[in-house]
Computed example of a mutant assay.
Amino acid sequence: MPGAAYPVPGAAYPVPAGPGAYAGWFPGIDPQDPLVNPPHAGIGPWFARCTAALRRGWRQLLPIVLLTQVAPAAVIGVLTLVFSPEGEMATTPDGAPVLPAGFWGQMLAFYGVLLSAGLIFGLLQAAGWAAGTWVVARQAAGEPAGLGAAFRYGLSRALGLWGWTLLVSLLVMIGSCFCLLPGLYAAFALALFGPVYLFERREPIGRAWRMFHSRFGMVLGRVALVIAVLVAATVLDAVVGGISGAVFGVEPMKAVGTAIGATALAVFGALLAAPAYLAQQVGLVVTYAEQRAHEGPVNAARLAAELG
């Protein structure tokens, strides 16, 4: 509502004592809001809002995901086939391993190409996450959310979101270098940095960290559901990769027929991940909106306005 005063995000929000419906405990929170799950409403209404967001926005979200997430994944998959080191490891008569000729040069080219592609496509992916968030929030508020306007918004926020994504990825990677568990913990604790940056445009890492630890079990459970879908997509992609290796061999790009087949399977594996990208997009936005409701009155219209 224009002119209304709202608590600063992150401020404590008092909960009156006594029995009653959760909507009564949190004045200013509409229990029927299409995006904001009221505090303590539970996982069922959270899931219902996620599925409702997908029903409202799949016509806009699907092309965004295909262009900005699936297409880069498919290209990287094909580049992996093209630049994978060739040759098989041999052994000397005494059993010592012998690397194929030019192995280290091929490995350097392989990882150089993949790293360069990841950095370049990361900017496109950031634009897609921003565009999808804009669609989810605008549609929940009942406002127009055309595909062209979504991409324009996404491009306007892409560089900043890409930079924060690189920083978060670095933190997760550093944590994983010490042990897998710290890296996994960092991935969960910082999962909401994207929505925080887009809606608040300040301190995304610190805010995401505090949100996670302020309501540890709740945020962990929501994020775990999203990551479980991503893990399932990763497993499917690995299965497709295994099938490709079994059918077309370890060097499929040496012959036209096997190259076409392996490329088609790489693209197919990327397409299989589309539902996971959609779930990630919607699940994190709804989770962020729910956490904002714990901090003060908020609704879909206010969140849509915050995107600018």
Rank of each mutant, 00 (worst) to 15 (best):
M89S: 07
M89A: 05
M89G: 12
M89L: 12
M89C: 08
T91L: 08
T91A: 13
T91R: 13
T91K: 11
T91M: 03
T91Q: 09
T92C: 10
T92M: 13
T92S: 09
T92Y: 07
P93M: 08
P93Y: 02
P93R: 04
P93T: 00
P93K: 03
D94R: 10
D94F: 14
D94S: 11
D94T: 13
D94Q: 11
D94A: 10
G95S: 05
A96P: 02
A96M: 09
A96I: 11
A96R: 15
A96Q: 12
P97C: 01
P97Q: 05
P97I: 02
V98M: 09
V98L: 10
V98H: 00
V98T: 13
V98A: 07
L99Y: 11
L99A: 13
L99M: 14
L99H: 08
L99Q: 07
P100Y: 04
P100H: 00
P100C: 08
P100F: 09
P100M: 02
A101D: 12
A101E: 15
A101R: 14
A101L: 10
A101G: 05
A101S: 12
A101W: 11
A101C: 07
A101Q: 09
A101M: 07
G102H: 04
G102L: 06
G102P: 03
G102V: 03
F103W: 15
F103I: 01
F103P: 01
W104V: 14
W104R: 06
W104I: 14
W104Y: 15
G105D: 14
G105F: 02
G105E: 06
Q106N: 05
Q106V: 11
Q106L: 00
Q106H: 02
M107E: 11
M107G: 02
M107Q: 05
M107W: 13
L108C: 04
L108Q: 15
L108S: 13
L108A: 15
L108K: 07
L108E: 07
A109P: 03
A109F: 03
A109C: 09
A109Q: 15
F110C: 09
F110H: 12
F110Y: 15
F110K: 05
Y111K: 01
Y111D: 10
Y111A: 09
Y111W: 14
Y111N: 08
G112I: 07
G112M: 05
G112H: 05
G112T: 07
V113T: 12
V113Q: 04
V113M: 10
L114I: 03
L114H: 03
L114G: 01
L114V: 02
L115Q: 09
L115V: 11
L115D: 08
L115C: 09
L115F: 12
S116T: 15
S116C: 10
A117L: 01
A117P: 01
A117C: 05
A117D: 01
A117R: 00
G118H: 08
G118P: 07
L119F: 06
L119W: 02
I120E: 00
I120Q: 06
I120T: 15
I120R: 08
I120V: 15
I120L: 15
F121D: 04
F121G: 02
F121N: 07
F121R: 08
F121Y: 10
F121E: 00
F121K: 03
F121C: 05
